[in-house]
């Protein structure tokens, strides 16, 4: 067996980071009661914008900032349509994916990278030299750490702050939240923007770190997977990490098993079918954890007169 479990787990973290980033953003959006199915569109906008800004300035920081801005920009289209003009969220989200994919492709046409972008790995002093755990967890680039810190931050803000309480109230029952005097639309607007920024960052991680290059359609469905993980995690931030690593891990594991002759412990694995296990697992988890209820107002339009 040539699979090195340490390297495999470290690779799994890198492969999972884009979906983890996009998913934490979508989780916040959904907890505010908004279902934005346009994650794929926002991710690919982030991927192209991050690539263009990064390779024009040579700065990874500028690249990621540009990606977040692009993600926010596209999410604002969704926010205006669904929150101000009260359009149907499902249809608008699907439209956002079409629009984002088209626009990203147009933006990327003819762009020639001017400067190289290097995102270096940061070994965390002390921790990175722990055997086994060190190389798996503490020798990554800044964005991998950021993705986990974001999950932590969302966990704390949602669970232990007033802002989080209001956001959850808005997501559970917007009419009651409105009656209590909470600014439903403003909260949702901010949650949608946060979702856009995170999706943008996730896209840029693909085009600036993981692949790294810009090609049409480079996100290749990662945004849809991010949506799946949010459900898998039953809207709980910590479970999101498990979900993202399971999904990301399955793709990396699948490739590794193939490289190793298609066998685990001598048993031949049908790799074609292995790639659908995360989705089936999500359904199973949904059934087992029927307590993992979606936010009460998810996907419904809010208007003060209702």
């Amino acid at each position: 067996m040539d699979i090195n479990p340490i390297l495999l787990l470290a690779a799994l973290m890198v492969a999972s980071t884009p979906i983890l980033l996009a998913a934490i953003g979508e989780l916040v959006t959904e907890r505010a009661g908004v279902l934005n199915l346009g994650v794929e569109g926002m991710m690919i906008m982030g991927a192209v914008a991050g690539y263009i800004v990064g390779h024009s300035t040579g700065s990874p920081l500028a690249g990621f900032a540009g990606a977040a801005a692009a993600g926010i920009g596209l999410s604002l289209v969704f926010a205006i349509l669904t929150q101000v003009l009260l359009t149907n969220q499902t249809a608008t989200g699907l439209g956002l994916t079409l629009f984002g994919m088209g626009l990203a492709s147009l933006m990327g046409q003819g762009f020639e990278p001017a400067l190289p972008v290097t995102v270096s790995k940061i070994a965390i002093p002390g921790l990175s030299s722990i055997p086994v755990l060190g190389p798996i967890l503490f020798q990554h680039d800044a964005i991998v750490y950021l993705s986990i810190l974001l999950v932590l931050a969302v966990y704390l803000v949602l669970g232990y702050s007033r802002a989080g309480l209001i956001l959850r109230a808005v997501g559970e029952n917007h009419d009651a939240a409105h009656a209590l005097g909470y600014p439903v639309r403003l909260v949702r607007l901010l949650a949608i923007m946060f979702g856009g920024a995170c999706a943008g960052l996730g896209g840029a991680y693909i085009s600036l770190v993981r692949v790294p290059q810009w090609i049409d359609g480079i996100t290749a469905g990662a945004g849809w997977i991010a949506l799946a993980i949010v459900v898998f995690a039953s809207w709980k931030p910590w479970r999101l990490i498990g979900g993202a690593y399971l999904f990301g891990g399955m793709t990396v594991l699948q490739l590794n098993i193939q490289g190793d002759g298609g066998k685990i412990f001598g048993v031949t694995v049908p790799v074609e079918y292995l790639s659908m296990t995360p989705f089936v697992a999500t359904i199973v988890v949904l059934v087992v954890m029927s307590a993992g209820r979606a936010p009460g107002s998810l996907g419904k339009s809010f208007h003060a007169s209702n």
Binding site: V77, L81, L85, L86, T87, N88, A91, T92, L94, G95, L96, L98, F99, G100, M101, G102, L103, A104, S105, L106, Q109, D216, H303
Partner: peptide, 26 residues
């Protein structure tokens, strides 16, 4: 015309129809 321009155009068409449709109820 690039294929991507059509995708963008379809997205815009959808947005416009959904947005203007709001005027039927509001």
């Amino acid at each position: 015309l690039p294929a991507a321009a059509i995708l963008t155009f379809q997205g815009m068409l959808l947005f416009a129809i959904l947005a203007v449709d709001t005027l039927t109820m509001y």
